[in-house]
Amino acid sequence: MTDAIATERATREPVLSVSVDYDVGDADDGMIASARAFTADFLAASPAMGREPVARERIDLARLVVSELVTNAVRHAPGPCRLLLELFEDALDISVFDRVETSPVPRGHDPGRIGQHGVEIVVAVCESVSVEPQHPTGKRVKARLALAGTG
């Protein structure tokens, strides 16, 4: 039954979707803040499209995931990146496209390490995280965040 559910989810169309492009070459903390605000505004506006409001906790988690994924693109992928948000009835797919083929790798637990916990955070709060090659070059990092309950 799990395969049927996964197939159904994979073939569904989003209720709403929106994207924004960033030039990582000119990256600064303003770009990451802009991506977080873009995400919050998108989710806050979803009731105007006939949807139930998204809980504040879920908006905050979406902002966190976007921040971590865009930060990875800024730090590790020179060139432009794209943030794509796809809103489904029960989930938000957050995708960041960049120009580097190398996949992000979660590091092992290390309470003494300062920073570099972004992938671990995304994996912990999301239902799923995947990396898809994009041709001719680059990748898509996609995270699915549940909009009800815990991720």
Rank of each mutant, 00 (worst) to 15 (best):
P133T: 07
N72G: 11
D28L: 13
G79N: 11
P106H: 06
V100Y: 07
P78I: 08
G108L: 11
A37G: 02
V125P: 05
R99A: 14
L69G: 08
T71L: 04
I32Q: 07
E57P: 01
G50L: 02
V70S: 13
P47Q: 11
R113K: 09
E52I: 06
A146S: 13
V20W: 01
R140L: 13
A48I: 02
Q134F: 10
R113S: 15
I121L: 11
G149A: 10
P104L: 07
S46M: 03
T7F: 08
F42Y: 01
K142I: 12
R113M: 10
P53S: 12
A33Y: 14
T71R: 10
G79R: 04
R12W: 00
V131Q: 06
L87P: 05
R9K: 08
V18G: 03
S95R: 12
D93A: 10
V122M: 13
G149Q: 09
R63C: 05
E68F: 15
R82S: 14
D28E: 11
E86D: 14
G138S: 11
I94K: 01
T150D: 15
G79S: 06
A40R: 07
P78R: 08
T71V: 04
A4K: 09
I32Y: 04
D28F: 07
Y22R: 05
L83F: 03
I121A: 04
A45P: 02
L85I: 04
G112V: 07
S19A: 09
V74N: 03
A55V: 05
F97W: 02
R99F: 00
D93I: 00
A44P: 01
D23M: 03
L61C: 05
L85M: 09
L64W: 08
V129C: 09
A40S: 14
E120I: 00
A35T: 07
T11I: 13
K139R: 14
D93H: 10
R12Y: 03
T137S: 07
A37N: 06
T150H: 15
V105W: 03
T39H: 15
D93T: 03
R99G: 02
T11F: 10
V131E: 08
R113E: 10
C126Q: 13
Q116R: 12
A40P: 05
C126G: 14
A27C: 12
T102D: 15
D23G: 05
G115R: 01
G25T: 12
